[in-house]
Write a protein that binds this DNA or RNA. Structure first.
Length: 276
DNA sequence: AACGATCCCTGTTGGC
DNA sequence: TGCCAACAGGGATCGT
């Protein structure tokens, strides 16, 4: 499922192809995929005729500023995928939004579970939507250990839940949160405020390498809902996971058995032997 | 304010 | 073998 590394892999794949091109039209096949607009047509109207100035990312959001102060925003949800195609290419099932660019080429949003979405926002709307909802990017703008300590101070929620909270840190999802906690040797159910400075430092140090490894291996793929790179390759990071999905298997670090517990309704995998 | 539960959605999985 | 309930999860929303 697309977390920060998968979204960044998508960004890097699309950027050289779509930046500088003008959006000629857009088609919304699943109205639900357009969020924060009164009508799906409002999204279409807002993006049509504008040129893509860049392709950026914040957390799991892809941001494409367009000429005329509108930003095309895309979130992949949990099963979303963006691909480049030529008009006439066979469409994958669940192709829910198609952006037609000059060329002509198409950007297709395929998303079976429709948890993803697109929107087109003004700078004010973007600011309003992100303020209080999306924190600093976990890869490009990682907060210092001191800043993290301030975020965690006094918090009673499990550190796992806080890592998933996009306001604390933007970009982590269930898989990478578990991997980061394993690398940092911290149990997921520990109250955020119970972490001492050394543990917070270890947690912070674990974030970069885990995300970089995910990015290096092309993202994580899970079964048939596999995250697919835009050109169709599957990532091989799944086989390299240390904790996620490995309940009952031996820990690669200490040989202990990986446990599965449910935190905030989400599966959490951790090692009883080396996470404290 | 912080926290936890619930809901949305559909393809896959696992148990009988 | 076949069927169906359970499961997966990011983010919005709501109740406490």
């Amino acid at each position: 499922m697309p977390e920060l590394p998968e979204v960044e892999a998508t960004r890097r794949h699309l950027e050289p192809v779509i930046v500088g091109r003008t959006i000629e039209s857009a088609a919304v096949r699943r109205p639900r995929m357009v969020r924060r607009h009164e009508r799906p047509e409002d999204f279409v109207d807002r993006v049509t005729g504008r040129r893509i100035e860049s392709l950026d990312r914040r957390g799991k959001f892809l941001l494409a500023p367009l000429t005329g102060d509108i930003t095309w925003v895309t979130h992949l949800g949990m099963s979303g995928r963006l691909s480049i195609a030529l008009p006439g290419d066979e469409e994958a099932p669940h192709t829910n939004v198609v952006i037609h660019l000059e060329g002509p080429i198409e950007v297709r949003l395929v998303d079976p579970r429709t948890f993803g979405f697109v929107a087109a926002w003004t700078p004010d709307e973007l600011e309003t939507m992100f303020r209080g909802r999306v924190g600093q990017d976990a890869l490009q703008d990682l907060p210092s250990a001191r800043e993290l300590a301030q975020e965690l101070a006094g918090r009673t929620a499990p550190i796992k839940a806080l890592l998933l909270d996009q306001r604390v840190l933007a970009g982590l999802g269930n898989i990478y949160a578990d991997e980061i906690l394993h690398r940092a040797a911290i149990r997921p159910e520990r109250p955020g405020g119970s972490l001492d400075p050394a543990e917070i430092a270890a947690l912070r140090r674990a974030i970069g390498p885990v995300l970089a490894a995910g990015l290096r291996h092309g993202g994580t793929s899970l079964g048939d809902l596999a995250y697919l790179l835009p050109d169709g390759r599957t990532g091989d990071f799944l086989q390299r996971l240390a904790a996620y999905g490995r309940a009952g298997e031996p820990c690669r670090r200490c040989g202990g058995i990986i446990q599965r517990t449910v935190i905030r309704g989400r599966s959490s995998f951790w090692c009883r032997g080396c996470q404290f």
